[in-house]
Amino acid sequence: MQPKVDFRLNAIVDVDAIGTDKDLGELALAAARGGATIIQYRDKKSPTRTMVERARQIHAALQGTGVPLVVNDRIDVAMAAEVEGAHIGREDMRVNDARSLLGPNAIIGLTVKNEADARDAIEGEIDYACIGGLFETLCKPNPDGPIGFDGFGRLAPIIRVVKPHLPIGAIAGIDLERTPHAIAAGADGVAVISAIFRQADPRGAAAALRAAVDQSLKERT
């Protein structure tokens, strides 16, 4: 069974981490050209209208790359900007409600932090799961604390026993050094912010991460 989503490298365009003085479309395109396989737009503080405009800007920049764009949390923004889908967490809309609004062809991803979230991933009609946060990160506070690779190794099998073909990624504090360890722990890919968008050469950083993911997947098989 071929998954709908290639989750090897999820580049997260996080406005709070990157800042508003950058061209978000240009950054997303650089990541895509470097090898990112999916882009996520995350913006927790901006007005809805601004978010829609930014999502459209990023989406327009990605046209022709074949790399899909999902919006974090905001189903309304994803629908208004007509992007490929949305990524949701435990405080966001329920998966089945999001699916009803976005339709069967949309990409829906789910953050998994604990066993209850893993069960939601099993029961919901999602296209990928992202387990974390694995490590501390300056980009997003984690009141639950990091779960590390051990936590990933505990949660991923809960999902895989029922959905063996569902892509499962690792998120939070993942950099080039930790990427092979994440894949060795069972991840199908990694989700990153700083490791791409806080680097002097985002395209080069994405290329290095993608190469590490691909090589680690090859060694695991």
Rank of each mutant, 00 (worst) to 15 (best):
Q2Y: 01
K4E: 02
V5F: 03
V5E: 09
D6P: 01
F7H: 01
L9T: 06
A11F: 13
A11H: 03
D14T: 12
D14C: 08
V15K: 13
D16H: 14
D21I: 14
D21R: 15
K22T: 10
K22W: 15
L24V: 12
A32K: 06
A36Q: 06
I39E: 04
Y41A: 04
R42G: 03
R42H: 05
D43A: 05
K44H: 09
K45G: 10
P47Q: 00
R49M: 09
R56M: 13
I58M: 12
I58F: 13
H59R: 14
A60H: 12
A60W: 06
L62Q: 11
Q63H: 13
T65N: 01
V67Q: 01
V67S: 03
P68S: 11
V70P: 08
D73L: 07
R74C: 01
V77F: 06
A80N: 07
V83E: 05
G89W: 06
G89Q: 03
D92A: 03
D92H: 08
M93A: 10
V95L: 14
A98M: 06
S100G: 11
L102M: 15
P104V: 07
P104T: 05
P104C: 04
P104N: 09
A106D: 09
G109E: 10
V112R: 11
V112N: 04
V112A: 04
N114Q: 00
N114R: 04
E115W: 08
A116Q: 15
D117H: 10
R119G: 10
D120Q: 14
I126F: 00
Y128G: 03
I131P: 00
I131M: 02
L134K: 08
T137K: 10
L138M: 12
K140Q: 09
P141G: 04
P141T: 08
N142H: 11
P143Q: 00
D144K: 15
G145L: 12
P146N: 11
I147S: 03
I147T: 05
F149P: 02
D150F: 12
D150N: 14
G151Q: 11
G151I: 05
F152V: 04
L155D: 03
P157R: 07
I158T: 09
V162Y: 05
V162M: 04
K163R: 15
H165R: 05
L166S: 12
I171F: 04
A172Q: 06
I174S: 04
R178S: 07
T179Y: 06
A185G: 01
A185S: 12
G186K: 08
G186H: 09
A187N: 04
A187Q: 01
A187V: 01
G189E: 03
A191Y: 00
V192M: 05
V192F: 01
I193T: 09
I196P: 00
R198H: 15
P202S: 09
P202M: 04
A206E: 09
L209Y: 00
L209R: 05
R220T: 00
